[in-house]
Simulated scan of single mutants.
Amino acid sequence: MTSVARRPITPIRPNATGCPGYSETLPCEPQSAGRARILVRAALIAWRLDHLVDDAALVITELVGNAARYSGSRVVRVSVTRPAPDRVRLAVSDRSPALPRLHTPAEDEEAGRGLLLIGAVAHRWDTELRRWGKVVWAEFRVPGDA
């Protein structure tokens, strides 16, 4: 009897969403940030952009957390794409038309710094309204030799 080599089961199966890209639909809850980080890490490692993993994990955690906290949606769509060879875009889509608001918290506040962190870590971020809701995204620049 010959043995058949089996592939290990992975916790995530990224789906192609562009040229190239990965995406996954997740419950709109804070715990989904962990799955989103796995997706982002898988994409960045596949593209040999390991140096972006920590900053991208912080950004996607904030984007998912904001959607869970403020959108009222049942699910979010998380995507990681390369809109150009020199950029990586992380995006979270939800059903709410409410735009994220940049807030400058007081020193003793424990929340309200998410968009400030995203602005400090990512090259740029923005929101695109859609008929069905919005997409909040953040981009990282990729060095030419990556």
Rank of each mutant, 00 (worst) to 15 (best):
F140H: 02
P20N: 03
G119E: 04
V136P: 01
L129P: 07
P97K: 03
H103D: 09
Y70M: 00
W137R: 01
A106D: 15
A46N: 11
R124Q: 07
L129N: 05
V75G: 01
R74N: 11
M1C: 12
I45T: 12
R130T: 10
G112L: 03
E110K: 07
A56S: 05
P27H: 09
C28S: 10
R35M: 13
D108H: 09
A36K: 04
D108K: 04
T61Y: 08
D108Q: 12
Y70C: 02
R130Q: 11
L52R: 04
G144K: 05
Y70A: 02
V53F: 11
T25G: 05
T127S: 06
T104R: 15
V135R: 08
P20W: 02
R113Y: 15
T17M: 13
A16M: 13
I9N: 12
G144S: 13
T81V: 07
A57M: 08
T61E: 08
P14D: 05
R141S: 03
G114I: 02
A91H: 00
I9C: 07
Q31G: 15
G72I: 09
I12D: 14
P83Q: 01
V78G: 04
A42I: 10
R101H: 12
V53A: 06
L99A: 12
N66Q: 09
S93Q: 12
A84E: 08
A67F: 12
G114S: 09
T61R: 04
S79F: 03
S93Y: 02
V4M: 11
I118F: 06
N66A: 11
A138V: 01
M1F: 14
Y70W: 14
T2E: 11
G114H: 04
R82L: 05
D145G: 03
V53P: 15
P105I: 00
N15W: 10
S32F: 14
L116V: 04
T17I: 15
R41F: 14
I9L: 15
D55C: 08
S23D: 13
A98H: 10
S3I: 15
V4D: 09
V76Q: 00
E110M: 07
W132K: 01
D54V: 11
M1T: 15
R13P: 10
W137P: 02
V59C: 05
P27M: 08
N66F: 10
P100E: 01
Y70N: 04
R35F: 11
R124S: 09
C19A: 14
A57P: 10
P11Q: 00
L26V: 06
R113C: 02
A42Y: 14
C19W: 05
V135M: 06
A33I: 06
V53D: 03
I9D: 14
V4T: 15
H103N: 09
P20A: 00
A5C: 07
A46D: 14
I60N: 03
A57I: 03
E107Q: 07
D54I: 06
Y22M: 05
R87N: 04
H123L: 12
V136H: 00
S79L: 03
C28Y: 04
R37C: 15
L63R: 01
G34H: 13
G119P: 02
R7D: 11
K134M: 06
T25F: 11
A111N: 13
E110A: 14
C19T: 10
Q31V: 13
T25V: 15
K134V: 02
S71E: 01
R35L: 12
G18I: 03
V88F: 02
V40H: 03
A146S: 11
A46T: 13
V76N: 00
